[in-house]
Amino acid sequence: METERHNGARDLCGPVRARVDTELADFLDGRLRGTAGDATAPLFRLVREFVLHGGKRLRPLLCYWGWRAAGGADCAEIIKAAAALEIFHAFCLIHDDVMDGSELRRGRPTLHRAVADRHTAHHWRGDSRRFGVATAILLGDLCMTWADELLFTSGVAAGRIAAARPYYHRMRAEVCYGQHLDIIEQAHGPTTAERSMRVLLYKSAKYTVERPLQVGGALAGTSPAVLAAYSRFGVAVGEAFQLRDDVLGAFGDPRVTGKPNLDDFRDGKPTVLIAHSIEHATPAQRRLIETLHGEPHLDEHGADRIREVLVDTGALAAVEGMIAEREDRALDVLATAPITEPARQALTQLITAATQRTT
């Protein structure tokens, strides 16, 4: 049954999210039963906890409403197919945390950290950190394999699966390409807003919104016109989503976001916030950013000095403006897109969830 939002509008996404969670639990429990008594079972349980604990389920929701917007009927098969994108997302997060050396995700230890802690607690031989990283890489790869399995055995007609494959494969390639761009920009140092937006587009925007929508639409057999509308909507919302993520990474409260607000600064992340601040900084402000941004031992005092520059140069205000502009653009696409009315309402709710979030 659809629940009521506090503002009186029906929450069209909550019930779908709950069904996706049930499907994820059932699928992962099945994989876990296959390892009963095996040494890998405790590590599989860590993956299960990682996937099921927290998360917005944004990508499965977009896949589901991409299907419904194209006229697809509600059914168990689309829930299974949509849930596959959450397992693919887990692969991305696990590997991203390894590459960034992150300690926390969703308020809990990252997977490589949890595995390393298990190694230490059991007094196993060798280096616990190396064991944690190696195991997390393998478990991340396993999640990508499981995502394929869940999608391709979802029960959606084979012809529709074939139609969705190109969008699914592009999503997988694009996120790897974007991640590599991110690493390159960190290595190069201070960047431009244009280059930062290119990283953002491929690392997050496409695989977060555009491709999940198109996978859902292609599974439903939708028209090229609808898929094109999904692309325009998806890029706008996806960029806004990542821009909000960058703001939260710099200014968010770790008790709310579940992630440290120093990691992006310490890693020298090539965000639009930083790029804009450098382009509009005084010589003194530029020196401060170039000195502190990417400093692996940056403390809270140093981070506050960076935040002050981000505000004083107008970078924070500029990024907030970019988020608002993309939100408006996405709403304009929805207003004229040839999609079903319930899906239009649900996608409107997802715009708000993506762009005005605090976590």
Rank of each mutant, 00 (worst) to 15 (best):
35 T>Y: 06
264 D>V: 11
210 E>M: 15
291 T>R: 07
190 P>Y: 01
286 R>V: 10
25 A>T: 13
1 M>R: 00
15 P>N: 10
323 I>P: 01
68 R>K: 14
202 Y>N: 07
163 A>E: 14
14 G>L: 09
312 D>L: 05
1 M>G: 15
350 L>M: 13
288 L>R: 03
90 A>N: 07
79 I>E: 00
73 A>V: 09
224 P>F: 01
111 L>A: 09
102 S>M: 09
67 W>P: 00
234 G>F: 02
325 E>S: 12
143 C>A: 03
31 R>F: 13
1 M>L: 12
240 A>R: 04
285 Q>T: 15
304 D>A: 03
329 R>M: 08
10 R>G: 05
353 A>T: 12
272 V>K: 09
22 T>E: 05
24 L>Q: 13
314 G>F: 09
153 T>Q: 10
239 E>I: 11
356 Q>V: 04
57 R>G: 08
265 F>T: 10
258 G>N: 02
295 E>L: 14
221 G>L: 08
121 A>N: 01
167 Y>R: 02
157 A>N: 08
15 P>M: 13
292 L>P: 05
92 C>H: 08
335 A>I: 09
41 A>C: 04
268 G>C: 10
334 L>N: 06
76 A>C: 07
345 Q>T: 09
33 R>S: 03
151 L>W: 03
64 Y>D: 07
349 Q>C: 11
320 E>P: 00
208 T>I: 13
44 F>A: 14
310 L>A: 04
1 M>H: 08
41 A>M: 01
156 V>T: 07
20 V>Q: 02
135 T>E: 10
54 G>I: 15
27 F>K: 13
235 V>F: 02
309 V>F: 02
323 I>N: 04
101 G>T: 07
54 G>N: 06
101 G>R: 08
254 P>N: 12
55 G>E: 09
222 T>D: 04
88 F>C: 10
216 G>H: 06
25 A>Q: 05
122 H>D: 10
4 E>T: 01
120 T>L: 15
24 L>S: 05
318 A>F: 08
277 S>R: 08
170 R>Y: 00
349 Q>I: 12
168 Y>R: 13
272 V>F: 06
315 A>S: 12
323 I>L: 00
163 A>F: 02
31 R>H: 11
249 G>Q: 06
195 R>E: 05
58 L>G: 00
263 D>C: 04
260 P>M: 11
231 S>K: 15
86 E>A: 03
359 T>R: 09
